[in-house]
Design a protein around this nucleic acid. Sequence first.
DNA 1: TGCCAGGCCCTCTTTAGGGCCTT
Length: 218
Amino acid sequence: MFRHKKGDVMEAVAVIDFETTGLSPDHGARATEIAAVLVRDGIVVDRYQSLMNAGVRIPPFIEDLTGISNAMVRKAPPAAEVMRAAADFVGEHPLVAHNAAFDSKFWDAELGRARRSRRQGFACSMLVARRVFPQAPSHKLGALIEFAKLPVAGRYHRALADAEMAASLLIRMEDELHRRYQVVEVTHDLLREIQSVQKNQLDRWLERFQRKSTAARP
DNA sequence: TGCCAGGCCCTCTTTAGGGCCTT
């Protein structure tokens, strides 16, 4: 599970989550909190979480949504310092986020401000969930946690709780891929391929994938 | 001051529009 493409070393993936002041870093929104959890062999093996001070005001609506106040962020370490620590924690492990289009923008923007750059790819647990659980009533993180009967890890819209829940969702989807489709090895590359498979084509796509994998084995 | 996004995905589609999802 989550074996790195190159070599035989079992490789973790890092599931990350940001809390921010808005929806787009291109329009002035900044991060207020980040969390990352490392998943290896189907379990969370390490965690990182920190509030961060980007020197911008959090709108009242976002304070209510996340429970992260301006006072809390004022006491937090500078954003660049936190991002460097988060990047060191994550290392070169491939990344996963729930709606990765959102988190990848903030990861790249905040890391750029800290004069660092991303070297690994992102996979999206929401896009994978749309394929693996097309019958779920919604593909919001909270709705998927309820649908899959997974434990609520803490307050929604706090970075560590959301990252933990995205990680448990990912592990559950891995289990489904093993159980339903007998996928031997769920790599990050496979997740990235699954997230672009057409709707209701996952069965057919994985059948072809398995045939190719079996044929390639010595 | 007030407002602000964008990629995915469906359908009453492809010469488009609108909901979902993230904060």
